[in-house]
C-alpha cells in the first residue's frame, strides 16, 4: 500500500515537472475545420519563422480540427480559440450570435469577405472510373453509392449539398420540386453520413467504401497526392459552387489572452505572397492574382456559382436547407 502511494506520488511529480511548455512567448489556438490539417501545419511553421524574424518573439500555434459545425459549437461552448478558420461564414455567424465572442460585422474585417483562399466541390472516383461517373446526374442513378458527410455537422457537406442543388436547379430550369427530388434521390444513394469531411474521405479512400466521394477540391487533390493517380481520378462536374472558407479573430478570447495583435498578424499573413503560395501548394485556390497565375495549371476551370447568386446568402441557405425541420431534414427523412 505504502509503496503504491509513493509510486503514484513520484509519478505525479515527474509528470508535473516535465509538463513545462515548449518555450514560447505567446501561444495562438487556431480552431479549424477538417481538411485544413496539412495546410495549417505548413502555414504555422512559416508564420512562426516570419514572426520571429519580424519581432524577435517566439510564438507557438496550436491546432484543433473537426467538422466545421462541430468546431463552431465547441468555440461557443468555450474552447479558447484565438482565431477560427472554418468552412463557411454561417458557422462564424453562429459563434457571433450564440456567444457574442465575435462581433456581428466580423466578415468586413479582412479582404475578400474574410476568405484568404477559396475552393470548390469536385467528385472523386476510383481509377478508370468503373461506374462511368461524369457529372452530378450520375450520382442519382440506382446502384451508385455516394460518400458525403453530414450537413448538420460538416461544412464541406453543406457545400456538397449546395453544389448539387445549384446543378439540379439549373438543369430543371429553376423548378424547385424537381430539384428537391434530385437531391432526395442523391441522398438515397448516400447510406453513411460521416460527421466531418476527413472521416468521409478516409471511408472512401482507405476503407474502400462507396463509388464516388463528393469532396472538397483540396481534399481530392490530397488523396491523389497520398495515394497516387493510379488509384483515384478527379471528375470535374459541369457546375459547382464557389466555396469561401472564412477566417476571423475570436475577439473576446484574443483580448482576454492578450493575443489580438499576433492573431491579426497571423490572419493577415494568410493573404501574403508566402501564405497564398502555401495555400496553393495545399490545393486551396489562392486569391492573390500573381500566385493564382502561377498555379493556373493546377486548378481546372469550373463553372462556379456563388451562394449569394443561387441561395441569396448563407443565412438564407442555412435556414431554408439545414435548420431543424429544413429541406435537408425533409429530404433525408423521406427515404
Amino acid at each position: 500500500m505504502k509503496f503504491n502511494l509513493w509510486l503514484s506520488a513520484g509519478l505525479l511529480t515527474f509528470i508535473l515537472a516535465s509538463s513545462g511548455q515548449a518555450l514560447a512567448d505567446q501561444t495562438l489556438l487556431n480552431v479549424s475545420y477538417d481538411p485544413t490539417r496539412e495546410l495549417y501545419q505548413e502555414f504555422n511553421r512559416a508564420f512562426i519563422r516570419y514572426w520571429q524574424e519580424k519581432t524577435g518573439e517566439k510564438v507557438s500555434v496550436r491546432q484543433s480540427h473537426g467538422g466545421s459545425g462541430k468546431q463552431a459549437r465547441a468555440v461557443i461552448d468555450g474552447v479558447p480559440a484565438d482565431v477560427v478558420t472554418l468552412a463557411l461564414a454561417y458557422d462564424i455567424d453562429a459563434i457571433s450570435k450564440q456567444s457574442g465572442l465575435v462581433p456581428p460585422e466580423w466578415q468586413d474585417r479582412l479582404p475578400n469577405n474574410s476568405s484568404p483562399y477559396v475552393s470548390t466541390i469536385v467528385l472523386l472516383v476510383r481509377k478508370d472510373n468503373p461506374k462511368g461517373i461524369s457529372d452530378w446526374d450520375d450520382l442519382i442513378k440506382p446502384g451508385i453509392t455516394v460518400m458525403t458527410p453530414n450537413p448538420k455537422t460538416s461544412g464541406g457537406a453543406r457545400w456538397n449539398y449546395l453544389a448539387a442543388w445549384s446543378f439540379a436547379l439549373k438543369k430543371y430550369n429553376g423548378d424547385e420540386a424537381k430539384t428537391r427530388d434530385f437531391l432526395s434521390r442523391l441522398y438515397k444513394n448516400a447510406p453513411i453520413l460521416d460527421s466531418g469531411a476527413r472521416g468521409s474521405a478516409i471511408n472512401f479512400i482507405r476503407h474502400g467504401m462507396g463509388d464516388v466521394l463528393i469532396s472538397w477540391e483540396n481534399e481530392a487533390f490530397l488523396a491523389l497526392k497520398e495515394y497516387g493517380p493510379e488509384q483515384f481520378e478527379i471528375i470535374i462536374p459541369s457546375i459547382s459552387i464557389l466555396a469561401e472558407p472564412p477566417v476571423t479573430i475570436v475577439t473576446k478570447n484574443a483580448d482576454k489572452h492578450g493575443t489580438h495583435t499576433i492573431a491579426q498578424a497571423y490572419l493577415e499573413y494568410l493573404y501574403s505572397k508566402e501564405g497564398q503560395d502555401i495555400a496553393a501548394r495545399n490545393f486551396y485556390r489562392p486569391s492573390d492574382p500573381d500566385i493564382a497565375r502561377k498555379y493556373t495549371h493546377q486548378f481546372p476551370e469550373i463553372n462556379l456559382l456563388t451562394v449569394d447568386e443561387v441561395f441569396g446568402g448563407w443565412q438564407k441557405a442555412q435556414s431554408i436547407h439545414f435548420s431543424d425541420g429544413g429541406l435537408f431534414d425533409k429530404i433525408y427523412v423521406n427515404q
Binding site: L5, S8, L11, L12, I15, L16, S18, S19
Partner: peptide
C-alpha cells in the same frame, strides 16, 4: 503525459 496525468489523479 496528459493520459498519465489524468490517470494519476483519477485513480488515487
Amino acid at each position: 503525459r496528459l493520459t498519465l496525468t489524468a490517470a494519476a489523479i483519477a485513480v488515487p
